[in-house]
Design a protein around this nucleic acid. Structure first.
Length: 504
DNA sequence: GTTGCCGGGTC
DNA sequence: GACCCGGCAAC
């Protein structure tokens, strides 16, 4: 795709992309082209933004935006209703292929098609040649400041009635000053203070999102990063996103946990189901031989700016060039969480091998590195030496491992405790201290002495392949009694647990 | 395909 | 805690 082709797009594209959705982004993702056509048919943000971008008066958007899609008078509007449903039904498929499009509310489709990598690592075509990009940028030199105050105002989740009419010039000036100040002092984003007030927290989140949006803005869409959007009838940009929520946590440490919590509070997110397969977005540096993966766009931008572009890292001024050197990648958070679960119980002194994420490839490597460095992984108290939470019936199983190993298993003082290490269940013996160490369940009293020595005890090298113990030789209740006499089984067998009756 | 049982869910 | 079950790995 060339800039010429881009410019040949009909003006409807400009309208369709809506306020702040600049053409150059709408076409940036080739795979979104059909989406784009749908949007040009009038699926439009309801944001009002009288911003003029290179002569295209985006205000015109509003002539379409406030109308029902089904009554859409815009070209192709007849296809809109069905087309949009179709589009919605495709949403997931697009997400998996690395595209992103979210519906934020009724009549609102926000499209963020920044640079992306699909999860298999295949680059998209929309990573157009740099020269094309540059030419595009010269055609549409969108900057954050190009967005009108009103739009930002509407985008903010500051709880002010969105329908409020402008109360006057002075008010606008104040708002403009606020916005500009906010935008120009963005280093705060990367250095959030712990004692931030709620409003500061909100502001931070907003700025973060703005930053993320800005990364998208070079691809033309003034929309916030609202993946996994299930909540949102609010146009409030930033904090409603799982993405920003989670990644803020991962990347910025515990102070953002508070932010995430406040986010949760503010938007009343239903607590996600544990099993939910959530794809998250991270930002990967595309610079050659650099596989840095960061969780925030601002972070990756800063990385590129400082490391690769050799610019002053302290200056948050960005001409947007960094945007072309990173891409978003989608990460299965289940995998990430799985990886984290290997880390969280670890002692802060742990210098263990990085967890192996099932993502494979360099992505996993980069990510694991990122995760390892995250404060989260280091925040686990050393007392959290959870071996395994076993069911009570298993505790009675006469599995015995008689000795407390005193041999130093690691040449260094690091303690490597895997969350998934094979459990070591000591049979409780008279006079002997017990052995199940668990944080979640205090099945047996763990003495202080034990807790001091358990580090050597539990650091028994686990078998590298899996955590399952080999199948026992003894016949189990099922074998002995058969399915027809299931009531004779031990309860464990009935519950598909390790047999208590016929142990090995 | 069968079996054992882990991990996690519900009540 | 009792109970249940999906799913995985060994067989």
């Amino acid at each position: 795709m060339t800039s010429k082709r881009l410019l040949d797009k009909s003006p409807a594209g400009v309208r369709g992309t809506g306020a702040g959705h600049v053409v150059y982004g709408g076409n940036y993702c080739t795979k979104v082209s059909e989406h784009f056509s749908a949007k040009t048919a009038g699926v439009i943000t309801r944001k009002k933004a009288p911003a003029t971008v290179n002569g295209f008066d985006t205000q015109i958007v509003d002539t379409c935006s406030l109308q029902e899609p089904s009554k859409e008078p815009c070209p192709n509007g007849s296809q809109l209703a069905s087309g949009r449903e179709k589009h919605n039904s495709k949403k997931k498929a697009f997400c998996t292929s690395g595209e992103r499009e979210r519906e934020v509310g009724p009549g609102e489709v926000l499209n963020c098609c920044t640079h992306r990598l699909s999860i298999n690592g295949q680059r998209q075509e929309d990573h157009m040649q740099v020269d094309s990009i540059i030419s595009l940028r010269s055609v549409l030199p969108l900057r954050v400041t190009d967005v009108s105050v009103e739009e930002i105002y509407a985008s903010s989740h500051i709880p002010v009635p969105r329908n409020r009419k402008p109360s006057g010039h002075a008010d606008k000036e104040v708002m403009a000053a606020t916005v500009l100040t906010t935008l120009s002092t963005s280093p705060l984003v990367l250095n959030p203070s712990l004692g931030a007030s709620v409003s500061e927290t909100s502001c931070r989140g907003w700025k973060e999102s703005l930053s993320a949006s800005y990364s998208s803005s070079t691809s033309g869409n003034w929309s916030w990063d609202a993946s996994d959007q299930s909540v949102p009838s609010t146009p409030s940009p930033p904090l409603s996103t799982d993405v920003s929520k989670n990644f803020l946590i991962y990347s910025q440490g515990e102070d953002n946990i508070e932010e995430a919590e406040s986010t949760h509070f503010l938007f009343e997110d239903p607590i996600p189901r544990k099993r939910k397969n959530s794809m998250k977005v991270m930002f990967k540096c595309l610079w050659k031989n650099c596989e840095k993966v960061l969780s925030t766009s601002s972070g990756i931008q800063r990385h590129i700016r400082t490391i690769h572009l050799g610019r002053n890292g302290d200056s948050d001024h960005s001409d947007g060039e960094e945007d072309f050197y990173y891409s978003e990648i989608e990460v299965n958070m289940d995998s990430l969480t799985e990886g984290l679960s290997n880390l969280t119980p670890t002692s802060p002194t742990t210098i263990g091998p990085p967890p192996v994420f099932p993502l494979g490839s360099d992505l996993a490597r980069s990510k694991s590195a990122t995760v390892v460095n995250s404060p989260l992984s280091q925040s686990a108290p050393s007392t959290l030496c959870h071996i395994r939470t076993d069911h009570a019936y298993q505790a009675t199983a006469p599995v015995s491992i008689p000795t407390v190993s005193s041999e130093p298993l690691h040449s260094h003082s690091a303690i490597s405790v895997s969350w998934q290490s094979p459990s070591i269940i000591f049979k409780s013996q008279p006079g002997a201290h017990v052995g199940i160490l668990s944080t979640g369940e205090k099945r047996q009293p763990v003495t202080h002495a034990i807790s001091k020595t358990h580090t050597t005890t539990i650091s028994t090298p686990k078998p590298s392949t899996g955590t399952r113990k080999p199948r026992g030789e003894a016949k189990k209740c099922r074998k002995v009694y058969g399915m027809e006499k299931k009531d004779l089984w031990c309860t464990a067998c009935r519950w598909k647990k390790a047999c208590q009756r016929f142990t090995d």
